[in-house]
């Protein structure tokens, strides 16, 4: 598998609607910010080539998703084969922070990655450019509660960013790329072809149906 010309790393950005997923992606890929992003319907992606540690060239394929819960049912196809998942919240919206766990769970269900225990997730708290007064009260404490909870907590790297001012976005995606590369190499080493159909219960069902029930 190392013979592949380009290393393609697939990154999925998840989080409640309006936390700034599109803005983060646009800021990282195109270095721009606009007040005129429309609500994302379905999914969209952009790619960017970067070098990791100054030598390894990789292509990041970043998937931007619709934030409303019901759109998750459309997500199955592109969660598959993800190398890293970015969980986003809005530092002014406590609910979006509280929902991170369910976004993570949903991702694991849909993508059915081979190593759910140590699949690379990263947390991004966006919109740090807004007034202090608007931010979630005692944010750090609440964030700690969520990340350090021993029982299924989100013990992942956290970045606080401003997609608007371009603060910390580059740094976050650098870490994302590194984590994704590790995951990709891990998958390669295991000979674990994530593209396989093994994770699709419904498929198995259909196959067993069409071949099995001759009785």
């Amino acid at each position: 598998m190392s013979g592949r010309k380009k290393t393609l790393l697939k990154v999925i950005i998840l989080g409640d609607s309006g936390v700034g997923k599109t803005s983060l992606m646009q800021q990282f890929v195109n270095n721009k910010f606009s007040h005129q992003y429309k609500a994302t319907i379905g999914a969209d992606f952009l790619t960017k080539e970067i070098s990791i540690d100054g030598n390894k060239q990789v292509t990041l394929q970043i998937w931007d998703t619709a934030g409303q819960e019901r759109f998750q049912s459309l997500g199955v196809a592109f969660y598959r084969g993800a190398d890293c998942c970015v969980l986003c919240y809005d530092v002014t919206n406590e609910k979006s922070l509280n929902n991170l766990t369910s976004w993570k769970d949903e991702f694991l269900v849909q993508s059915n990655v081979s190593n759910p225990q140590d699949f690379p997730f990263i947390i991004i708290g966006n919109k740090i450019d807004v007034d202090e007064a608007k931010k979630i009260p005692s944010l750090q404490k609440k964030l700690q509660n969520i990340t350090n909870n021993q029982l299924g907590g989100l013990n992942y790297p956290v970045f606080e960013t401003s997609a608007k001012d371009g603060i910390n976005v580059e740094a976050a995606f650098e870490v994302i790329a590194k984590m994704a590369l590790q995951q990709e190499e891990l998958n390669d080493a295991n000979g674990n072809d994530v593209s396989d159909d093994y994770n699709d219960a419904i498929n198995i069902h259909l196959e067993s149906e069409s071949s099995g029930c001759a009785c």
Binding site: A43, L74, A77, F78, D200, N203
Partner: peptide
Amino acid sequence: TRLPPVTL
């Protein structure tokens, strides 16, 4: 059961 990716 598995709509092609383009259905997104």
